[in-house]
Design a binder for these strands. Structure first.
Lengths: 240, 240
DNA sequence: TCTTACAACTTGTATATACACGTGTCAAGA
DNA sequence: TCTTGACACGTGTATATACAAGTTGTAAGA
């Protein structure tokens, strides 16, 4: 897979790791842009692009006339915002999670997505996985991988990391997704698999994932146990 | 209030309105960066900064070697991602919503936020508002406006638009917020105000809002009727 | 016919320069 | 003592230039 080795990303990653490991502490200012220019041997514009990346991520706050403050933010929950695979999430947070593949076979696309512009006779791989966190079933993931460009998914890869397979093995460049979150009454299967009672609801996250070239590749329905569901978000106020 | 009249924002807004009004249609390419450079009489870097803004918002997809495609995305629901006031949301979507101010008085900060670093004897204005959409109570908003910098909130302003008051009248520059979403059992007050039954749950959105200079100004607990709750999100895959 | 190479376009990255503008300090002056 | 203004230093915006690299069409060549 192609890796971005641009200077601005190398610098961004370096500053992030220095924040992560305490070299730059929350509440303190980073070195000024001109100092960073010398530090990294890059132009100020390149430094600024790296810092804007951190600003967007909510790691720093840029203040005109003063400098860039390191913010004190840690998020340890399921990211609805952002596209992160369960595998990446798991390894970045020591969640002690495991994945059980329940189904993996060709199938057609369900109603919800047909109503949103997906073609009626679109071929797809139906993938049903149960995420078990600390011994408790917490999330039921139902994926439809579209063919083309995905012919099939080896169950071993589905157990390990679907995104690693798509990006690494198939060379697909996953770029963006739209997501919709609602709270619903669970159906029989969801109740059984997630150990829900009659009084419980289920949190449904439905998403459509696209490649670099705007090709639709993945449809997902994610059902979360409401008591296990919690996510945090960082947002900047936009005045466009 | 200071308005940003930078060239790159003017250009971004202009292209957005051209997308909105169909001059640039979903699935088609925008003019190339060089053409836009001529069109707006700006340098290519300035054009690129405007386009990157649209890219982040999910309005276009930039493709190296080809151009920028207009994406087909519309979101008409409650934005958890992003900081948008209810008033802005209402006017941008013709929601037919009204706001009822239930309480507006000095108070102390509740447990949840104390546990997250807010000072114990922090003074605050307690503001409780019910949002009624199409005649149905849908959201219960509970705000704590911190003093300083907010001494009090006129109830007229709380009914109209809190953010207009904070940004316009008080000149505060709201910059970013952290949010946390969970699904909970409602308490007695929430049940009564939102017309919930014993079987219902409530969606809780708790957020902390900060100014440009990282000053904490607003704590919010937002309780949504689960059947009225629905939000959509656009996310780009980040590999940092 | 098929393949290769090139040209012409596109966006991506990096640099140097200039000035605007917000913030804080400090000394001169009323 | 208080205010003002100059200055240093910070980030914000805009420009011009250069080259890297992805995409596509076309013409040359086997």
């Amino acid at each position: 897979m192609k890796v971005n080795r641009s200077k601005q990303l190398i610098i961004a990653r370096d500053i992030i790791s220095k924040i992560k490991y305490g070299q730059y502490r929350p509440g303190t200012y980073l070195p000024s842009e001109n100092q960073l220019t010398d530090l990294y041997g890059a132009s100020r514009e390149t430094i600024r692009k790296a810092l804007n990346e951190l600003n967007d991520l909510g790691l720093i706050q840029k203040i005109k006339g003063k400098g860039s403050i390191v913010l004190d933010i840690q998020r340890y929950t399921f990211p609805i915002s952002g596209i992160t695979s369960f595998k990446e999430l798991n390894s970045s947070q020591a969640m002690n999670a495991q994945t059980k593949v329940l189904q993996n076979k060709p199938a057609s696309v369900p109603e919800y997505f047909l109503a949103r512009g997906v073609d009626n006779d679109q071929r797809a791989t139906f993938l049903e996985r149960l995420r078990i966190v600390n011994g408790e079933p917490s999330v039921l993931d139902i994926d439809y991988l579209l063919d083309p460009p995905i012919q099939k998914v080896p169950t071993a890869e589905a157990t390990n990391s679907l995104y690693e397979y798509l990006e690494g093995q198939l060379g697909l460049r996953i770029s963006y997704a739209t997501k919709e979150v609602t709270v619903e009454k669970p159906n029989v299967e969801q109740k059984k698999l997630l150990n829900l009672t009659d009084r419980d609801m289920v949190v449904a996250v439905r998403s459509m994932t696209y490649l670099d070239d705007t090709t639709l590749v993945q449809l997902t329905e994610s059902y979360h146990r409401p008591d296990k569901f919690k996510f945090t978000d960082f947002a900047r106020r936009k005045r466009i």
